[in-house]
Computed example of a mutant assay.
Amino acid sequence: MTEFDGVIVGGGRNGLACAARLARTGPSAAVAQRNGTAGDPGIFPWQTPVPEPRWDG
């Protein structure tokens, strides 16, 4: 198992900038991103898909 000195949650521009800064200074960091695309702002609350209503009748 790989060990890291820190974990950054969120691969947006600030998370990637933080990881780059850590990488330059020595500590290793893992970046965790919910979506498959790094650098993406992710899903905003107003973009969250709403499930279709289900009728059991």
Rank of each mutant, 00 (worst) to 15 (best):
2 T>C: 08
2 T>N: 11
3 E>T: 08
3 E>F: 01
4 F>W: 05
4 F>T: 03
6 G>S: 08
7 V>G: 03
7 V>Q: 03
7 V>M: 05
8 I>N: 00
8 I>S: 02
8 I>E: 01
9 V>A: 05
9 V>K: 02
10 G>V: 03
11 G>D: 07
11 G>N: 09
12 G>I: 12
12 G>R: 14
12 G>M: 12
13 R>M: 15
14 N>Y: 09
16 L>C: 13
16 L>S: 03
16 L>Y: 04
16 L>E: 07
17 A>D: 02
18 C>H: 04
18 C>M: 13
18 C>N: 06
18 C>T: 14
19 A>E: 01
20 A>Y: 11
20 A>I: 11
21 R>I: 04
21 R>T: 03
21 R>D: 11
22 L>T: 01
22 L>C: 04
22 L>S: 04
23 A>C: 04
23 A>G: 03
24 R>N: 03
25 T>S: 05
25 T>H: 07
26 G>N: 02
26 G>S: 05
26 G>M: 03
26 G>L: 04
27 P>Y: 05
27 P>H: 01
27 P>R: 02
28 S>H: 00
29 A>H: 01
29 A>G: 03
29 A>P: 02
29 A>K: 01
29 A>W: 03
30 A>F: 00
32 A>D: 06
32 A>M: 13
32 A>Q: 08
33 Q>K: 02
33 Q>W: 00
34 R>L: 15
34 R>W: 10
34 R>E: 14
34 R>V: 14
35 N>P: 10
35 N>R: 12
36 G>V: 14
36 G>E: 13
36 G>A: 15
37 T>Y: 12
37 T>F: 10
37 T>L: 15
38 A>D: 05
38 A>P: 13
38 A>N: 07
38 A>W: 09
39 G>P: 06
39 G>I: 06
39 G>C: 09
39 G>S: 04
39 G>K: 07
40 D>V: 09
40 D>I: 06
41 P>T: 09
41 P>I: 10
41 P>V: 11
41 P>W: 09
41 P>A: 12
41 P>N: 09
41 P>D: 09
41 P>Q: 08
42 G>Y: 00
42 G>K: 00
42 G>E: 02
42 G>P: 00
43 I>C: 12
43 I>L: 14
44 F>K: 12
44 F>E: 15
44 F>Y: 13
45 P>G: 04
45 P>S: 07
46 W>R: 10
47 Q>N: 15
47 Q>H: 15
48 T>Y: 12
48 T>C: 14
48 T>Q: 14
48 T>H: 13
49 P>Q: 08
49 P>F: 01
49 P>S: 05
50 V>C: 06
50 V>M: 13
50 V>N: 08
53 P>Y: 12
53 P>F: 09
54 R>F: 06
54 R>P: 03
55 W>R: 11
56 D>C: 11
56 D>L: 14
57 G>N: 07
57 G>I: 15
57 G>W: 10
57 G>M: 12
